[in-house]
């Protein structure tokens, strides 16, 4: 099973550890993982800013890079949804429609892949303590990622998952929204952080780095240093800040 890891531009730049965690999990699931070196971005920033042309160009590039993979896996619901849901729309009624649909069909968000396709039985992580899980919007609503991360979290024997209120409410990230409408975005992050803090969790976990940056940035600005902010891959793989 040849799996192409799409690292995502945010992970590449801001938290490489998540990429290595994803790699470790995929290998633990028995995958033969390849990481195409020329990969950059799925095109979502352009797509959501109204620039379909740039999005299409990047979709073509990504299609070439992952052409020979059985699966494409990304540690992000948002990027995976871009490929899985929006590429076919972008290329509807064009010559590339079929190729894009085939790419879409073999694209998965990381936890979805580990549970649905790979049937991963044990996870290497060793975290101990209480966590709470934030459902990132794209993964949740566009890909149906809800049970998958929880199934995997349940495999960590020393983790106590305490659900927060409104776990499915947007944290306010929204890509460029967080900068263009900073005060609305920050208020949404503030609301989210209040729910996180109310659970008394040692760590908040989510499947998208964008949400994590937003949540961590807000928690730290509020002066809260205690709650750790982890990507689901880091938690499951044991690639947390202390372990590296």
């Amino acid at each position: 099973m040849r799996v192409g890891l799409f690292v995502t531009c945010l992970v590449d730049l801001l938290r490489p550890r998540i990429g290595f965690a994803a790699l470790r999990l995929l290998e633990a699931a028995g995958a033969d993982v390849v990481v195409p070196r020329t990969q950059t971005c799925c095109g979502q920033p352009g797509y959501n800013s109204g620039d379909k042309q740039a999005a299409r160009a990047l979709a073509h590039k990504l299609l070439d890079e992952f052409q020979d993979c059985d699966y494409l896996v990304a540690p992000s619901g948002s990027c995976a949804a871009m490929i899985r849901v929006h590429y076919p729309t972008l290329f509807a009624d064009t010559d590339d429609a079929a190729a894009m649909s085939r790419l879409a069909a073999r694209t998965y968000e990381l936890t979805d892949f580990l549970v649905t396709i790979a049937g991963l039985q044990t996870v290497p992580g060793t975290f101990a303590g209480r966590i709470t899980y934030h459902d990132s919007c794209s993964g949740l609503r566009e890909l149906g990622v809800r049970k998958q991360p929880r199934t995997l979290i349940a495999k960590l024997p020393h983790v106590d998952l305490q659900e927060m209120h409104e776990a499915q409410t947007c944290c306010g990230f929204g890509g460029t929204f967080a900068v263009k409408y900073g005060d609305i975005s920050a208020r949404m992050a503030e609301n989210k952080c209040a729910q996180i803090t109310a659970t008394g969790a040692d760590a908040v976990v989510a499947g998208d780095l964008g949400c994590l940056l937003n949540i961590e940035g807000r928690l730290r600005r509020e002066g809260s240093q205690k709650t750790r902010v982890l990507h689901i891959a880091e938690l499951l793989a044991g690639e947390t800040p202390e372990s590296t």
């Binding site: 490489p16 550890r17 409408y181 900073g182 961590e216 807000r218």
Partner: peptide, 24 residues
């Protein structure tokens, strides 16, 4: 250029090396 972000939040800084460099 990203005051919209930092007016209400910190921005968590990267570790200093990109994934692609570390992976290579």
């Amino acid at each position: 250029l990203a005051g919209g972000w930092t007016d209400g939040r910190d921005f968590p800084a990267p570790s200093g090396r990109t994934f692609r460099d570390l992976y290579a």
